[in-house]
Nucleic acid binder design. Structure first.
Length: 830
RNA sequence: GCGGGAGUGGUGAAAUUGGUAGACACGCAGGAUUUAGGUUCCUGUGCCAUGCGCGCGUGCGGGUUCGAGUCCCGUCUCCCGCACCA
């Protein structure tokens, strides 16, 4: 970067500028927020807090660069901005790394946090350093326990025995959300199922509100995230229908989204791994039972291996039993088949082969009848093998005949409700949130197991339940929590009856920690409450959340859920935590995600060393729309560095005193400066950071020309005005460079607090514009005209342009469209 | 299959009420400065034709309009999420 010939008068040296300003900012703390007397309106800008698994990487660099633009922008607009940072410090990676290195997870975590903190300061993140938090601090996690207890009281935290996802490598249970295509989200191991008693949060109680709440976020959250959440919750609307079974007391209830096709049901299918299937098989006699048992074994063996297979050849076994269709009394043979899942709906379906592809596949294989009940133009499914799911007119359906799908849907439910054999119902893909983990490095669950009293909550005044020191504990994954072996810790008297009892040895999923941390920032060291209610009322909700799309489902869904819970507990008065969300893309290298194994890792520290902090930040902002991925191979950090040097040199050459009246300056340059100032807010608020940088570059180029133009020159006040505007806006992207320029321009630090200059509307109005003149829609000439030119005048001027005259020739002008002052279009006969 | 999004130069991308397509950069080419390289500065750069341009051009095909990257209909491709979810 540096000029080694020494012939240039000024040198831009990113490193020395960084060294120069960091201590000044530490002293000034320009981003401290929350002085009680601060009259500025509030703005809460939050970056997703990092996991301290090492030093910052390119992904952090992008996220924090973009979040910083937003935070710094609102400061420049005169807001009291709270922009805090913390560490999501509990969790498996820390524990695994600690085991590998033979360290205490605590030591390893805190060391990483310190390293990240140093890197963030160097990276000029505009965080309020008085408001940091670490989720592994007991002053933080005690409030996880507090939250757990409140939820326990409300029945929202409960234990149940069920088949859970199990990662054999990490030896711990996983939430549904942590299983990606049958594999552990973290270590990619094939997930297995294990029957265990675990703690759950009852997120399904909030399914409707979580889904409906997405409507309010439309426009302020990326469509992609809204759609992912919608999919994840997976609400479907339909009906529960009760079917009597021959020779059996209790009916079987099935869930269907197509009650309109009830008359088209020709058989029933149960999930093989249900008690009902087992019972029916037993009741049907030895032969059936044997066939069923064999099938069940086959299904169980297959699940783990064939999980991923894409073609699902239908299999199943007849249970030799019949159900009665409640609307027409028909006998429906009952099968057990693995295409019906035990954990969806009631684990049983009515099969309508004509109108459902899966049922049709099964019916064709087992030679079951196929009855069309929705008449459409499609070919007969029994012939074509293609089910007809679309609309049509109902036939063969008794009272539903002649109705369309939608009407029949409603009517069928009415009929069922009248007869008491069914009712409208909803179903969700969403499952309750499994929060217990059999690992050490997390928040202890504040429950004591007493032989006499059962599950006893730890009284609030005994919180926190401290995590015991790891010394002497075996942290190796082994399927049970290491805390169970901490005898001094685990054995306690029951808080209720005083008898010897044991603490729950599990720890909480770290997503519990991150589901409410945004609230803690308003009073990070409060020891009376998780957050100060008054401060929360003042600051919340978060106005702008910034983070990666990797958290589109997990973290954001959990945080929305916990927010609604806290709302219902009367602790806060809003239901959505994050008003606006910006999801930045990923930083790639040569088209794919960076990884050591792929050998395409770009180290942030190397980039910072090569071009400096500001150039890296600027590159992140300029690369393209923030939500798009950045391929580091496609961008030019050195190009950014060159631009910064150009801008910086501009400031060195300004030769008019600070405070000079810009009104005396060059008009053309002033016009461009003020158009720039006018457009910047709209551009930044629309997250079009790349455009903002382009506009900065444009203004730098123009100002350079003005400066070098002898008729304008370094003493022109308009040059100073332009450079000041550049400096202030540049401070959003390249704070070190801008700070240095600000000083050269004769001001005290910090430029971050300078404020965006007002733009002068008269300068926006006065300048001339280029009118485009078209003939038959093709551009044939241009005309410099005043902004307020009259239509007639513009038309006459346009008609005289040589290019236009030539294009028209002797043909007749049929029509002339004039939109002053921008365009004239002559329509001529062809 | 369901849901969401996107297709614009060699590359990243602009064009936010239908009105100059390709701003701003990267790359490349040429030139100035330099012993040389780098830096810095200047010029050029959508495609085709380049002796000429009422020539072509925003995935493709239609339509509306004086005028379409933008609106409408159809179609293809790609990316993301969910998926034997009844």
């Amino acid at each position: 970067m540096s000029n080694q010939t020494g012939t240039e008068p000024f040198e831009y040296d990113a490193k020395s500028i960084q060294r120069k300003w960091q201590p000044v900012w530490d002293e000034l703390a320009p981003f401290d927020s929350g002085r009680p007397d601060d009259p500025r309106p509030k703005k809460y800008v939050l970056d997703m807090f990092p996991y301290p698994s090492g030093d910052l990487h390119m992904g952090h660099a992008e996220a924090y660069a973009l979040g910083d633009v937003v935070a710094r922008y609102w400061v420049q607009r005169g807001y009291n901005v709270m922009h805090p940072i913390g560490w999501d410090a509990f969790g498996l990676p820390a524990e695994n790394a600690a085991i590998k290195r033979g360290l205490d997870p605590r030591e390893w975590t805190y060391a990483n946090i310190e390293q990240q903190r140093t890197s963030m300061r160097n990276y000029a993140c505009s965080f309020d350093w008085k408001r940091t938090l670490r989720t592994c601090d007991e002053e933080y996690y005690r409030w996880n326990q507090w939250l757990f207890l409140r939820m326990f009281e409300k029945g929202l935290a409960y234990r149940k025995d069920s088949w859970v996802n199990w990662c054999p490598k990490d030896e711990t249970v996983l939430a549904n959300e942590q299983v990606v295509q049958g594999r552990c989200e973290r270590c990619d191991t094939l997930v297995t199922k294990k029957k265990l008693t675990q703690w759950y949060f009852k997120i399904t109680d909030y399914a409707d509100r979580l889904l409906d709440g997405l409507e309010d976020l439309r426009g302020n959250w990326p469509d992609r995230v809204l759609s992912m959440q919608r999919n994840w919750i997976g609400r479907s609307v339909g009906a529960d229908v009760d079917f009597q079974i021959e020779g059996r007391e209790e009916p079987v209830t099935v869930y269907t989204t197509r009650p309109d096709t009830l008359y088209g049901a020709t058989f029933m299918v149960l999930a093989p791994d249900t008690e009902l299937a087992q019972e029916l098989a037993e009741d049907a006699g030895a032969e059936t039972l044997q066939a069923f048992t064999e099938y069940l074994e086959q299904v169980k063996a297959q699940t783990e291996i064939a999980r991923e297979s894409t073609d699902h050849e239908k299999t199943g076994v007849f249970l030799n039993q019949y159900a009665i269709n409640p609307v027409n009394g028909e006998r429906l043979p009952i099968y057990a088949a693995d295409y019906v899942l035990s954990d969806h709906g009631h684990g049983a379906i009515m099969a309508v082969p004509a109108h459902d592809q899966r049922d049709l596949d099964f019916a064709r294989k087992f030679h079951l009848p196929i009855r069309v009940v929705v008449d459409s133009d499609e070919p007969d499914p029994a012939e074509s093998g293609v089910a007809v799911p679309g609309d049509g007119v109902l036939i063969n359906s008794g009272p539903l005949d002649g109705l369309h799908k939608e009407e029949a849907f409603q009517k069928a439910i009415e009929v069922l409700e009248q007869r008491g054999t069914g009712r409208a119902a909803k179903n969700y893909r969403l499952r309750d949130w499994l929060i217990s983990r059999q690992r050490y490095w997390g928040t202890p669950i504040p429950i004591i197991h007493c032989e006499h009293c059962g599950l006893v909550p730890v009284p609030d005044d005994q919180l926190p339940v401290r995590l015991p020191a790891s010394a002497g504990l075996d942290l190796q994954p082994k399927g049970t929590s290491p805390l169970g072996a901490a005898e001094d810790w685990v054995n306690v008297p029951c808080p209720k009856c005083g008898a010897p009892a044991r603490r729950d040895p599990d720890t909480m999923d770290t997503f519990v920690d991150s589901s409410w941390y945004y609230l803690r920032f308003v009073s990070p060291h409060d020891d009376a409450a998780p957050f100060d209610p008054e401060l929360a009322a003042q600051w919340l909700p978060v106005d702008q959340y910034v983070g990666g799309v990797t958290h589109a489902i997990l973290h954001l869904l959990y945080a929305r859920f916990i927010t609604k819970v806290l709302h219902d507990l009367g602790k806060i008065d809003f239901e959505e935590p994050f008003t606006r969300l910006l999801n930045q893309g990923m930083v790639l290298m040569d088209g794919s995600a960076m990884s050591k194994s792929r050998g395409n890792l770009v180290r942030l520290s190397d980039e910072l060393e090569a071009v400096g902090v500001d150039a890296v930040r600027l590159t992140m902002a300029f690369a393209g729309p923030p939500e798009d991925d950045i391929d580091w191979a496609d961008v030019s950090p050195t190009g950014s560095a060159k631009f910064l040097a150009r801008a910086w040199r501009l400031a060195q050459e300004v030769f008019s005193p600070a405070g000079v009246d810009p009104a005396l300056g060059n008009r053309a340059l002033r016009v461009q400066t003020h158009r720039f100032l006018h457009d910047i807010p709209e551009i930044i608020e629309g997250f079009r950071f790349n455009v903002a940088v382009a506009r900065l570059m444009e203004l730098v180029n123009t100002t350079r020309k003005a400066l070098d133009d002898p008729s304008i020159g370094a003493t022109d006040p308009a040059v100073r005005e332009a450079v000041e505007a550049i400096t202030i806006v540049l401070s959003l992207f390249a704070p070190y460079t801008a700070e240095d320029m600000w000083q050269v321009l004769g001001y005290e630090p910090s430029v971050s607090l300078a404020g965006l200059p007002d733009c002068d509307p008269t300068l926006l109005m006065e300048h001339t514009v280029t009118a485009v003149v078209q003939v038959n829609g093709k551009v044939r000439g241009r005309l410099e005209v005043p902004r307020n030119i009259a239509e007639d005048e513009l038309r006459e001027g346009a008609a005289k342009l040589p290019g236009v005259v030539q294009a028209i020739g002797d043909r007749q002008i049929v029509k002339c469209i004039v939109r002053a002052p921008k365009i004239v279009n002559f329509v001529i006969a062809r």
